[in-house]
Structures are given as structure tokens and as C-alpha cells.
Design a protein around this nucleic acid. Structure first.
Length: 287
DNA sequence: GCGTCCAGGTCTACC
DNA sequence: GGTAGACCTGGACGC
């Protein structure tokens, strides 16, 4: 195994990023909470599967171990996963000005864990819709077991090569199979440019509408993907966070999405991230 | 053991 | 533009 260290932003928290949402629970991520090592597999552009292990180092850097591959590519992947190039100064300024939100800056939370690629994030997001978390986990695990011998998340080419009924029955994607099959085909045949989405520097509402054009991506999934792309305006609540909001604010019934949006609208471009952090605040105060 | 509900929603047809 | 019904699956729950 080879090793290198990656410098970190001063307000980076390894634990807060790892536990920022459910992605850590989905393969090919495998986290050892005792040793605090995050393992991950990814298929590089040459088609070989790389094995990575990431650990927080006391000198405030990430120690990255890898079995093979080009270091610059691995560095790019790790930077994407941990959001190392994300500028959250606006969020922390907002948090510093509010006693209610000060914990956000104190705990250095706000970096949402991502997969090694936007493609992987897209498929995982579709697999969170209209099902329990156990099913999401099973679908992602099945995709890897059935399609990718090296334990990494399969590429669009691997998915597009599969029969739709195989994806539906064997991988157990159910009615999501044609959506995911079509998405893989659109990427391969360059009808959908993931690079353009990944490097988006335009209006976030335009990007939101573009994401909604993808079959299987509705308001919840598009809003959640926007957060993973660094645009935090949309709360994009789901059934879990609606109930959590109801519990936190002692409401007698589940709030509507517009009620949630109204509650956070003063946070403007940070509204969606503040919403998610408030809903998950107890995660960061566990012993 | 069996039936029903619903989960980190979305799509389509219809009005 | 708003709404009803369908959609895979499997765990939880009531009976």
C-alpha cells in the first residue's frame, strides 16, 4: 500500500463529515468507528478498481492509503468525497451571528459526505426514494455484488450493459430499473453531461430544473442533490425530516413542505443546509 | 400466519 | 397547476 497526506481546511471535522447523512452506511463505503478509518473502492478511468483507506491524522490532515492508481486522481476523489474545496465561510458567519446556530460553527459541521462520483450520488439518491433505508442499502449492495466484481460502485457502462429485467428482479431496483437504465444510457451517449453539472457555475434554480428532467428525480431528490453539489437553498424534506421537524418544534401534525421552506427562508442560500443540520443536530452530540 | 401500511417519492393521466 | 392512482419491496404492526 502507498500513502500520502492531504491538507485540510481549518474548519474541517472528519467525524462530522463522515456522519453528515446516510451515505456512510451505503457500500462501497465501509467505516470502522473504532479505528476511525473509512474504506472505499472506486473504478478509475482506466477501468481498474482501486482500494482506498482514509484516516484522520493528528496534524490535521487526511492520511490516504491506496493499493494502486494515479495519486492525482485519488486526491481528486478524496477531495470530492470530503468536500475539501467547499467554502462554508458564509454558513459559519451566519452561525456566529445566531446563538441558536452557533453550535454549527463550534462543531465545524456542514460538509455533506459525497460519493467518489456524481453518477454514484445520482443512483444512490434515486434508490432512497419511496422505500425504507434497509431497501436502499440492499439495492446499492446488490448493484455492486451483481455488476462489479471488484467491490466498487459499477460504472454507467456496466449498468447500461445489463438487461432491464435483471436490474428489476435480481438487483431488486423494482420500478426504478428503467429510470436507472435510461440514465446510464444517457450518460454514455452524452445526452446528459455530468461534468457540466459537477462544475456548474450558473443559477441554482436552473440546475434544479435540469435535475428534475432526469426520470426518477423529483423535488426531494433534486433538492438533496443540489446540496451535494454545493447549492443549499432547498430544504428538500423527506418523510423522516418532516417528522423530525414536527418533533423538534412540538407540532401536532406533520408540516407541509411550504411551511418548512417558510421557516428557513430567512437563511436564503443556506436555508436547505441549516434545515438539514437542525434536523440532525443530535447526531453530532452523541457520545 | 396473514393482511395492511408505509418508507429518506415520482410518474403519468386526467381534469 | 393540481390531484389520484400506480409503482417494487420488505419490515413493522395489528389481528
Amino acid at each position: 500500500m502507498e500513502t500520502f497526506n492531504l491538507a485540510l481546511p481549518h474548519n474541517f471535522s472528519f467525524q462530522s463529515t463522515v456522519y453528515s447523512h446516510g451515505w456512510i452506511d451505503l457500500a462501497p463505503f465501509a467505516y470502522d468507528p473504532d479505528r476511525r478509518i473509512l474504506a472505499y473502492h472506486i473504478i478509475d478511468p482506466t477501468g481498474q478498481t482501486l482500494q482506498l483507506a482514509v484516516e484522520y491524522s493528528d496534524d490535521h490532515s487526511l492520511q490516504v492509503q491506496y493499493d494502486k492508481g494515479i495519486r492525482s486522481y485519488i486526491k481528486k476523489v478524496i477531495t470530492r468525497i470530503f468536500r475539501l474545496d467547499e467554502d462554508l465561510s458564509g454558513l459559519y458567519k451566519l452561525a456566529d451571528e445566531s446563538p441558536q446556530l452557533r453550535w454549527i460553527a463550534d462543531k465545524s459541521v456542514g460538509r455533506l459526505l459525497r460519493s467518489g462520483s456524481l453518477w454514484e450520488d445520482l443512483i444512490k439518491m434515486i434508490c432512497t426514494t419511496n422505500c425504507s433505508w434497509v431497501m436502499t442499502r440492499n439495492m446499492i449492495t446488490n448493484l455492486i455484488i451483481e455488476l462489479s466484481p471488484g467491490k466498487a460502485f459499477p460504472t454507467p457502462e456496466m449498468v447500461a450493459a445489463c438487461d432491464e429485467s435483471f436490474l428489476r428482479k435480481k438487483v431488486k431496483l423494482g420500478y426504478r430499473a428503467p429510470y436507472i437504465s435510461e440514465l446510464a444510457g444517457n450518460i454514455i451517449e452524452e445526452r446528459l453531461d455530468l461534468e457540466a453539472i459537477e462544475n456548474w457555475d450558473g443559477n441554482d434554480e436552473t440546475l434544479y430544473r435540469q435535475l428534475l428532467q432526469i426520470k426518477g428525480i423529483g423535488p426531494y431528490a433534486a433538492g438533496s442533490l443540489l446540496k451535494l453539489l454545493g447549492f443549499y437553498r432547498h430544504p428538500a424534506p423527506d418523510s423522516w425530516s418532516r417528522k423530525k421537524f414536527m418533533q423538534i418544534f412540538s407540532l401536532s401534525e406533520v408540516p407541509t413542505d411550504s411551511e418548512i421552506e417558510k421557516h428557513y427562508q430567512s437563511y436564503a442560500s443556506w436555508a436547505g443546509l441549516v434545515f438539514w443540520l437542525e434536523m440532525t443536530k443530535d447526531w453530532y452530540f452523541r457520545s
